[in-house]
């Protein structure tokens, strides 16, 4: 499954099935610092991702 990361924008390939929480842990991302977005809405932590999912992991921290 392809995952879009931002800042800078890039795509990575991830083995599925995997839950959102486990995916973030595998990528060493803090759940407080990102949103997982798919099909125009938020994907909750307990969702299990499969091959036909397309998700974006969007950082939410800004320098402001």
């Amino acid at each position: 499954m392809k995952v879009l990361l931002r800042n800078p924008s890039r795509e990575i390939e991830i083995e599925v099935p995997i839950s959102v929480v486990k995916l973030l842990r595998r990528l060493d991302l803090n759940r407080e610092s990102v949103l997982v977005i798919g099909r125009g809405t938020l994907v909750p932590g307990d969702a299990v991702l499969d091959d036909d999912d397309e998700i974006e992991i969007r950082p939410v921290i800004s320098g402001g």
Partner: peptide, 28 residues
Amino acid sequence: ERETAAYCVLRGIEYQVEECPMADGNRH
């Protein structure tokens, strides 16, 4: 920040996701 970003996504508000290129090294 996670809540304001989530609010924008769920309200369909498109916003600048990329970080300001000049903020690199910003202490905050």
